[in-house]
Write a protein that binds this DNA or RNA. Structure first.
Length: 558
RNA sequence: GAUUCGGUAGCUCAGUCGGUAGAGCAGCGGCCUUUUAAGCCGUGGGUCGAGGGUUCAAAUCCCUCCCGAGUCACCA
């Protein structure tokens, strides 16, 4: 390690990193601080583009002076001038810098001449700069902020490691001749592992990735707005729990030192929200991170986000209404944002865009996932009782004896885990015969009694519970019950589950006496819902993997 | 857990039959005061994921391992 070039780590520096540190040294030598404290800016790139819309240079110039700050994402220097593309908030605008010592046009002199120009020449992609100047339009018509005056240019932060900016994409004709190239149009930092591990780099160079997360946030806000408008109270419940429950899942275990007790990261907040209903809050909701110590795949991450809400005096039918309304509202908001964002690129006029948004609001624009339309998404979602769905496939559960059901399983070479029960056989048949064909939104409802211990028995069929699991594009996107509130029955069901746990069955939970006590004091009838926020984001932003809607998906450490 | 594909320069990739590695962009030096694929001239850069084996010789063939992605299985 030399005194100037500290590696700051075990790995040797690349030639590019060394070059940037040399630039940094040179800038300091010029008396310029490469990491100043603040920069006052008047506008952002998106604002400037909006203001410059349809105006020529002469009209732009009289608008006055503007300033902006952002990251250098492209640099085209030519001797005593430079065109830069600056990105702020994932929007880009061109900036023009001139050495300008002998500029003819009064007032358009950068004005720092020899002093600042070496700093401009030492810029690297990824640096942050501030620019003050006037708007203009170049020969080719691109809106550009031209730096003017002694404060026209400031270095705000030096980048000493090259970002993985995409190379240009080439279009070739049959003979292999390059007939066109474009840069910064498409994401070409494609190493998927690096993108997840270094999300900051992914976001910095792939604005459309950042947009997915902006859409996700907008979506979450819509869900929250809906629930608040419906008089639900937002609450917070423990993440660290001495007894985990509310879902069948293996927990992460940790330890509290001062109390010297094991603690679990919650697998669900369900039992706490029900306690709150017992406590007299009639409508509560919570956005929660749940943690489940299970596998990772396209639709599962060990920590994931749900919104759960509980409503006193309601049942699962009421919850279906909320569920559909929330999804449709969030989807419309996301579709509108997508339309607005792409309007300029698509050449859509403001009037046409307004009509588009009205059509989206009216539900006339279909949601598309992975190239396939969800045609009934903005209509009434089908309510699909498991038994009814099977009957349509020629399997009438109620008309079949146990041995007939067992025969059905054997004939199809299905595998039933655990011991045979009619309910398990029914769900197996549903998964094998119905689920693969589910695409349009459907409330899969009225599951067998043994599927959950937290749900009320179906009012019309004692072998079922009042539960629904909505499926969209083949994905389970939530779960809801007419919540069980009979403490005697609840105790029996939970005790049975504990027994099964002792018998070695996976994924049961310990008996939560405190939860039972709350129910014994009296709990009103209620409907409860959990919505998987990550999967919702996948559906609405058209991403095929849950990792593409998580800013920092779990990765094995480097 | 099973299985398929992948890991080569900062990024994206090529690398034939085994003969000590290439391209574009990025970088570096030079020229250039309206570029936007900037252009022109010159130029540096590699523990080919790791380890072992076969061979005169391994990015390439074999074995083991690591990491990732996909598919299946698991998943109230």
């Amino acid at each position: 390690m030399s005194e100037q070039i500290s590696t700051g780590g075990a790995q040797a520096l690349t030639d590019q990193e060394l070059a940037r540190r040399e630039n940094l040294r040179r800038i300091r030598e010029l008396g310029v601080e490469p990491y100043p404290y603040r920069f006052e800016f008047s506008h952002r790139a998106a604002d400037l583009r909006l203001m410059g819309e349809g105006k020529e240079s002469a009209a732009l110039r009289v608008l006055g002076t503007y300033s902006l700050a952002g990251r250098v994402v492209a640099f085209r220097g030519s001797g005593k001038t430079a065109f830069l593309n600056i990105q702020d908030d994932h929007e880009r605008i061109q900036v023009y810098l001139r050495k300008d010592d002998d500029a003819q046009e009064a007032g358009l002199v950068l004005g720092q001449g020899d002093a600042i120009w070496p700093v401009v020449r030492s810029l690297d992609l990824g640096d942050f700069i501030g620019v003050r100047g006037v708007l203009m339009r170049t020969k080719s018509g691109e809106l550009t902020l031209q730096a003017v005056g002694p404060n026209g240019f400031e270095l705000l932060s030096k980048s000493i490691k090259p970002l993985p900016f995409p190379k240009v994409e080439e279009t070739k004709d049959e003979s292999g001749k390059v007939i066109g190239r474009k840069s910064f149009q498409s994401s070409l930092f494609t190493d998927i592992e690096a993108r997840y591990r270094q999300r900051y780099a992914d976001l910095a160079v792939n604005p459309e990735v950042a947009n997915v997360f902006r859409l996700r946030t907008a979506m979450v806000q819509e869900v929250r707005s809906y629930l608040l408008e419906q008089q639900f109270l937002e609450v917070e419940t423990p993440t660290l729990q001495a007894i985990y429950g509310g879902a069948s899942a293996r927990p992460f275990v940790t330890h509290h030192n001062a109390l010297d007790i094991p603690l679990y990261l919650r697998v669900s907040n369900e039992l706490y929200l029900k306690r709150l209903i017992a406590g007299g809050f009639d409508r509560v909701f919570e956005f929660v991170k749940d943690f489940r110590n299970e596998g990772i795949d396209r639709t599962h991450n060990p920590e994931f986000t749900q919104v759960e809400f509980y409503q006193a005096y309601a049942d699962y039918n009421d919850m279906m209404v909320h569920f559909q309304a929330i999804w449709q509202r969030a989807a419309k908001t996301v579709l509108k944002l997508k339309a607005r964002r792409s309007a300029l690129a698509r050449g859509v006029t403001p009037e046409a865009l307004e009509r588009e948004c009205q059509a989206i609001q009216a539900g006339d624009v279909p949601l598309v996932y992975q190239g396939r339309e969800l045609t009934t998404f903005f209509g009434q979602w089908e309510r699909l009782p498991v038994k009814t769905a099977l009957k349509r496939k020629g399997v009438d559960i109620d008309a079949m004896a146990d041995d007939e059901l067992q025969d059905l399983i054997k004939r199809n070479h299905w595998e039933l885990d655990g011991t045979f029960t009619r309910g398990r056989a029914m769900m197996l048949a549903f998964e094998e015969m119905v689920e693969p064909d589910l695409w349009e939104p459907a409330f899969v409802m009225d599951h067998p009694l043994e599927s959950t211990p937290l749900c009320k028995v179906h009012r019309a069929d004692p072998t079922l519970v009042e539960r629904f699991e909505p499926a969209i594009a083949g994905m389970e996107v939530g779960n809801s019950y007419s919540e069980l509130n009979d403490p005697i029955v609840q105790r029996r069901l939970l005790e049975q589950q504990v027994e099964r746990g002792r018998g070695g069955e996976d994924e049961t939970h310990p008996l939560d006496e405190d939860f039972l006590r709350a129910m014994e004091y009296g709990m009103p009838p209620m409907g409860g819902v959990g919505i998987g926020i990550d999967r919702m984001a996948m559906l609405l932003t058209d991403q095929s993997s849950i990792r593409d809607v998580l800013l920092f998906p779990l990765q094995r450490p480097e």
